[in-house]
């Protein structure tokens, strides 16, 4: 597996972690009733979307540059 492919796998796992962290923040907010965690959930969700956008950008850019190893 090339670095390019492993990077995409890594970004997928990072996105899943960000989504998991968002879910965890929602859970803590429900249990503790602390609004700061709701902010954490929103931030984590935004990070997850940003990672997905970056993943697609990276894939397309590598394909365009034909960096395939």
């Amino acid at each position: 597996m090339s670095l390019k492919a492993f990077h995409i796998v890594f970004i997928i796992f990072s996105t899943l972690l960000a989504l998991g962290t968002a879910a965890w923040c929602v859970w803590v907010d429900l249990v503790e009733g602390a609004p700061i965690y709701l902010a954490g959930a929103i931030a984590s969700f935004v990070v997850a979307i940003a990672l997905m956008v970056y993943g697609f950008w990276f894939y397309r850019k590598m394909k365009r540059l034909r960096i395939i190893t």
């Binding site: 090339s2 670095l3 492993f6 990077h7 990072s14 998991g20 962290t21």
Partner: peptide, 20 residues
Amino acid sequence: VEVSGLFWHFVDLIWIFVFP
């Protein structure tokens, strides 16, 4: 750089499991 980058990605991936 690719080989060391693969190692670095692996180390980061480990942290993705350590953190949660």
